[in-house]
Simulated scan of single mutants.
Amino acid sequence: MRVPENPARTVRATPVTTYNYVMSGLSVRSDVEMPSAILAEASGGGEPDVTITIGEVPAHLAAATRVGGDWEFAPGEFLLRLRDLMKVYVTGGSSILLEPAATCDPGDLTLYLLGTCFAILLQQRGRVVLHASAVAVGDRAMLFCGASGMGKSTMAAMLSERGYPLLNDDVCNLSPDADDRYSVYPDGRMLKLWSGSVDHLRWTATEDARIRHDAEKFYMAPASVDLKPRIVGGVYMLHAAEAGATATVEPLNAAESMSLLTVNAYRPALVKAMQMVPTYFAASAALQRHAGVFRLSRPMDFSRAAESLDVLEAHWAGIR
Rank of each mutant, 00 (worst) to 15 (best):
288 Q>D: 08
67 V>E: 14
49 D>M: 09
84 D>E: 13
81 R>P: 01
255 A>I: 13
64 A>G: 06
1 M>E: 04
42 A>Q: 09
150 M>G: 00
2 R>A: 11
269 A>M: 13
53 T>E: 11
289 R>H: 15
125 R>E: 01
156 A>C: 07
233 G>E: 07
299 P>H: 04
228 K>A: 15
29 R>E: 11
149 G>A: 03
263 V>E: 14
291 A>R: 08
239 H>K: 14
287 L>A: 06
130 L>I: 06
170 D>Q: 02
293 V>E: 07
130 L>H: 09
291 A>F: 03
281 F>R: 12
300 M>C: 06
78 F>W: 02
3 V>P: 08
94 S>P: 01
152 K>C: 04
79 L>V: 08
168 N>H: 14
157 A>W: 10
266 Y>E: 07
257 S>W: 02
217 K>M: 12
53 T>R: 15
74 A>F: 08
230 R>D: 03
81 R>F: 11
81 R>H: 15
249 V>F: 07
261 L>M: 15
210 R>C: 03
268 P>A: 05
77 E>W: 04
35 P>N: 01
179 D>F: 09
239 H>E: 11
315 H>M: 09
315 H>E: 05
229 P>D: 06
198 V>W: 09
85 L>M: 10
38 I>S: 01
252 L>Y: 10
174 L>R: 12
101 A>N: 09
24 S>A: 15
297 S>W: 03
93 G>H: 05
245 A>G: 00
2 R>K: 12
246 T>A: 14
144 F>M: 10
98 L>W: 03
174 L>Q: 07
207 E>S: 12
27 S>I: 05
292 G>N: 07
289 R>Q: 14
310 D>T: 13
94 S>M: 05
208 D>M: 03
218 F>S: 01
34 M>C: 12
294 F>W: 14
285 A>Y: 09
78 F>S: 02
112 Y>F: 15
192 K>A: 12
315 H>P: 07
110 T>Q: 15
44 G>H: 08
206 T>C: 02
50 V>C: 09
238 L>I: 05
184 V>G: 05
113 L>A: 03
134 A>D: 03
300 M>Y: 15
46 G>T: 13
96 I>D: 03
303 S>Y: 09
117 C>M: 08
268 P>D: 03
6 N>M: 10
14 T>A: 11
171 V>P: 08
147 A>H: 12
308 S>N: 02
138 G>Y: 07
284 S>C: 12
263 V>M: 14
250 E>F: 02
55 G>N: 06
12 R>H: 12
300 M>F: 14
221 A>Y: 11
219 Y>A: 11
170 D>V: 02
200 H>T: 04
158 M>T: 00
240 A>S: 13
275 Q>L: 11
102 A>S: 10
285 A>V: 08
239 H>T: 13
207 E>I: 00
65 T>A: 04
278 P>R: 02
258 M>N: 10
29 R>W: 00
306 A>L: 08
113 L>C: 01
295 R>H: 09
119 A>I: 03
115 G>E: 07
264 N>E: 12
125 R>T: 02
296 L>M: 15
164 Y>M: 10
164 Y>K: 11
41 E>G: 11
106 P>L: 05
39 L>T: 12
317 A>F: 07
3 V>R: 12
309 L>V: 10
295 R>S: 11
144 F>N: 09
